[in-house]
Design a protein around this nucleic acid. Structure first.
Lengths: 362, 362
DNA sequence: CTGAAAGCGCTTACAG
DNA sequence: CTGAAAGCGCTTACAG
């Protein structure tokens, strides 16, 4: 008898754990019940809840509805709403490693802030680059009728577009299709970033500035080099290929590049990324050189935990992850104009710290 | 006439951007259409799709249904499914900064892997500690009828439970309620971690081991100290309060603690976290001391970008973010038993690198 | 082995 | 100013 009681009258809530401490795990209150309690039709309740402009509901009626909602603790069922409208208030975010990468979580942050601003929530899936998971994730998003999908990568790179993705309205974030015009995309402006990084050094009075580029091919490798050249040219300094080194883009790479760098007889160096700069710091120190007096250093990425806390703190250029996420959402929702065939480029702002002093030109 | 055409026949897809390159942005194919194409009832299609055991469908019929699904490119509408079942296949994850914090994104990763394993997707909201956003996020999750909510913090701490959260089945992740038994929770085992960290040093032959604790109060502060004491006691070394220093838990704190540390005449030091150890590296170097020969160092957190790339690489103890997320999901789904009144504790495994050598006892 | 029908919780014309 | 009714796309007993 007792167990009969427990199972009757409540169709929903499968498998709710007994250990749960929540209050109202029973069948949720529906709009119909609110209507009955308020003595009106369900249409009226719906109108009141959604504050429809041209529906004129009497103040007294409106009040009764609100009271009923409060008393019953009514929560709208978003699934039912979506069923009617055809599209959910979700924006999907497929990430190949954003959640597990130190700083790119800001893509999530920026996308979410912008999405919420327009009444959307994020449906995030971290795929770790697994193609099967990726496909399942996109399928899931499609089945939940997302408004659109942001397809993002943890580092800036070309990508091909999964077939399933094409079934949705989508935008590439931090990546782009090799085929121009194949998809809307938003990426960091590597060349401008490289130029800004170099300019920090130039402003410090340096004329012989080395660049330690990455060994591995990437849009960043080309763009950051281009920016370096642009800055030199604008300053009337002729480009010397001999001042461009290459190293693996991490601490060990930077450390090992020290020796080569010191042969170049430069007073300043721009590193492909902050990690490289961190390794270089160690190398310079071992050679008895001090930063910035003996060598000015700038990095790239503004990887907070490193750049802000080296000694001296590292001047660098910020990768605009937050803005990438936000711009992706705006592009998706059609709030920003998509430029012709090429990706939207987001600026990489310079962040100046103490690793570049004022150099008196010899 | 033409614009008439464009607006008719397709009830759904409001506001789909013209710039979108997708293929099938039209009204989606429904189950009913599949049924018609296959010449069966919707019930049969539903049965086939969901592979119901006791529904016996003829092989030939089943095949017709599958063909129709493929030809029409049918995608189930998850919203309609959820409407019927009452609960969605979502697990909510409320995070106060996980997405914007370097390493805690692993909570997302672990939660997602475990959730997918059981057919659930994650609905993530990053609240940055904003109480209003937090409430809105939980409300949204409730309206989407999530199976339950994981409430997580980016560092281990006590938290109070928002009222709205109680309306859901929930689990605290990386945080806990000050009231014992108020909620299921999963946290890192700080004491075990502190003990493991200290033991790395002890195994290296060190007897005088300093501990630089944090200045700011936190479960980690108490737990990591307790672990240090436990390890010493187990090794038969009496605890000397004079060997416990305190510093702000970042690079600057570690750097500034160097002087005090060197007065203690120890051969090894366990730092509250990796960032502190990074600063200490600089301090020791400036004093002409080498690691590990003059001073063995261990950290805590295993913050990859630091610990794995200092020179020498730092021995440390790993904060089990991935496991916290995964265990949170298991607890929520009732797959793991919730222990009586206290949080589930997840081990912090030691990660040994080169910052601890073998010390010959004097 | 398969179909007709009711219903999940909403919103939206349509009447009045 | 408000209500009755149809319908969004599914699933689930219930018949047969």
């Amino acid at each position: 008898m007792i167990s009969q009681e427990k199972n009757s009258g409540s169709a929903a809530t499968p498998g709710a754990s007994d250990a749960s401490a929540g209050s109202s795990r029973a069948r949720p209150v529906t709009l119909r019940e609110v209507a009955e309690a308020a003595g009106v039709s369900t249409a009226t309740v719906s109108l009141v809840i959604n504050k429809k402009k041209n529906a004129r509901i009497g103040d007294e009626t409106r009040q009764r509805v609100h009271d009923a909602i409060r008393q019953l603790g009514y929560r709208p069922n978003a699934m039912a709403k979506t069923l009617v409208s055809g599209t959910s208030r979700f924006i999907g975010l497929v990430a190949d490693g954003v959640a597990t990468t130190p700083f790119a979580g800001q893509i999530i942050h920026g996308a979410q802030d912008e999405a919420w601003k327009h009444g959307y929530a994020l449906l995030i899936t971290n795929t770790e680059g697994n193609r099967d998971l990726e496909k399942d994730a996109i399928t899931m998003m499609l089945e939940y009728k997302v408004r659109g999908i942001l397809y993002s990568t943890w580092f800036h790179r070309p990508t091909d577009i999964p077939d399933t993705l094409r079934e949705a309205d989508f935008v590439l974030v931090n990546c782009f299709s090799p085929k121009p015009g194949a998809a809307r995309a938003v990426v960091p402006d590597e060349a401008q970033g490289g130029r800004s990084a170099t300019e920090i050094l130039l402003r410090g009075g340096h004329r012989r500035v080395a660049f330690i580029n990455a060994t591995i091919p990437a849009p960043a490798k080309d763009g950051r080099l281009q920016g370096y050249k642009d800055a030199l040219e604008a300053a009337g300094i002729s480009f010397d290929p001999g001042l461009v080194l290459e190293a693996y883009p991490d601490q060990e790479g930077g450390y090992r590049a020290t020796e080569e760098l010191l042969k170049r007889n430069v007073t300043a160096v721009y590193c492909y990324n902050d990690r490289m700069a961190m390794g270089l710091y160690d190398g310079l120190r071992e050679n008895g050189l001090s930063i910035p007096d003996d060598m000015a250093v700038v990095g790239f990425d503004n990887q907070e935990v490193i750049a802000a806390h080296l000694r001296p703190p590292l001047s660098t250029v910020s990768l605009p992850h937050y803005e990438l996420g936000a711009a992706g959402v705006r592009l998706l929702l059609g709030l920003d104009e998509a430029p012709g065939d090429s990706p939207v480029k987001i600026a990489c702002p310079a962040v100046e710290r103490a690793s570049v002093g004022v150099h008196s030109t010899a």
